[in-house]
């Protein structure tokens, strides 16, 4: 086989995902994840109508995004099989969000520090 594995091969290429890709997630597990997603959806709608901003400004946003993040994590881990995938896939998924964070952070560092605080609309 061409893919004779050399001891030098970087562990990013660890071929354990060959077994991982064929990992079959059981139907009950899928249904459980589905349940979590549904609960999250209902929760996020209900919470949105409650004024949490009196706790601290932006609390509503924070809660809504946290729930969205949790939902996303479950979709990625189980529906998209990341949990059973190689490190490279983990790295890829994380890198995507890391770069998104770079774009947000470095754009906002401008908008949040405009010295006059005013952008004349």
């Amino acid at each position: 086989m061409a893919h004779t594995h050399d001891e030098h091969k970087n562990n990013l290429d660890s071929h354990d995902e060959h077994s991982g890709a064929h990992h079959i997630v059981s139907i009950p597990l899928y249904l459980m994840v589905f349940g979590i997603l549904m609960v999250g959806t209902i929760l996020t709608v209900l919470v949105a109508f409650v004024d949490l901003d009196h706790i601290f400004p932006g609390a509503n946003t924070l809660v809504a995004l946290t729930i969205a993040f949790v939902k996303m994590t479950f979709v990625m881990l189980y529906f998209m099989h990341v949990k059973y995938s190689s490190k490279l896939i983990w790295l890829t998924a994380i890198a995507g969000f890391f770069w998104l964070a770079i774009m947000f952070a470095y754009t906002m560092q401008d908008y949040l520090t405009r010295s006059q605080g005013v952008f004349n609309g």
């Binding site: 949105a48 949490l52 509503n60 809504a64 996303m72 990625m76």
Partner: peptide
């Protein structure tokens, strides 16, 4: 398909919910 779903998971609160209170 799941990715498109994830995008919606974020779009829904950002577009429909924030500011409801």
């Amino acid at each position: 398909w799941h990715f498109v779903d994830i995008v919606w998971i974020f779009l829904f609160p950002l577009l429909y919910l924030l500011g409801r209170h």
